[in-house]
Amino acid sequence: MEQRKVMIKVNNLNKSFGDLHVLKDVDIEVHEQDVVVLIGASGSGKSTLLRCLNYLEYKESGSITIDGKVIEPDQTDLNKVRQEVGMVFQHFNLFPHKTVLENVIEAPVMVKKIPKDKAVEEGRALLKKVGLADKEDVYPSKLSGGQKQRVAIARSLAMKPKIMLFDEPTSALDPELVGEVLSTMKDLAREGMTMLVVTHEMGFAREAADTVVYMHDGKIVEKGTPSDIFSQPKNQRTKDFLGTIL
């Protein structure tokens, strides 16, 4: 494999909630244009790891480097970091008092101070890309879960992030709506977006991931290509986990 830029580099990351040690000396590296899928049981620390990367949760110790810059909350403008690291949430978190288009252009206009007509133009292009061009004037409450999540993806992309984090993007969806969101994510992966995805969708991991990382109890147990992890897992825990879900 050719040498590509390291977009995310995490060393010895630790995080606790009270007495609960959620992340234990986690190391992870994501190269530019890579799709890394985090799998593991609930409570294994996958989501917390994701949330530490854009500082929705503050790490306790360890280092986080994003696009070559070491991120320390007291020395770095976290708002700037978050503009470059998009995040898609399990529960969409669309702004219910704004229309679909307003959701998408909110941050570009208010944070990046892009002229409104330009933001609208770009917003429409993004909505078209996620297949929701006809919904721009609709309020989120009128959308299906799958549509909401696609709007949320468009809203994140509107900030032109270098990295996209997905925190169980399909876990709150009815089964028949999962496909449309996954296919939007696959399109994104094909276009070369650097993605770190927490998911229980093993089909997506197998098909779209460059690397699959299995976490258990706050530690990274095993990482490898999808075929390595799914066909010949080395660690007994990984085998057990895959045995329960496949």
Partner: peptide
């Protein structure tokens, strides 16, 4: 107002006061 609303605003690079004013307070 769901904590996720503020988080969504923050994850888009909004400062807390801005996310408060544009996202949380109107709701």
């Amino acid at each position: 107002i769901n904590k996720g609303q503020l988080e969504a605003g923050r994850s888009l690079g909004m400062s807390t006061p801005l996310a408060m004013r544009r996202i949380v307070l109107p709701q």
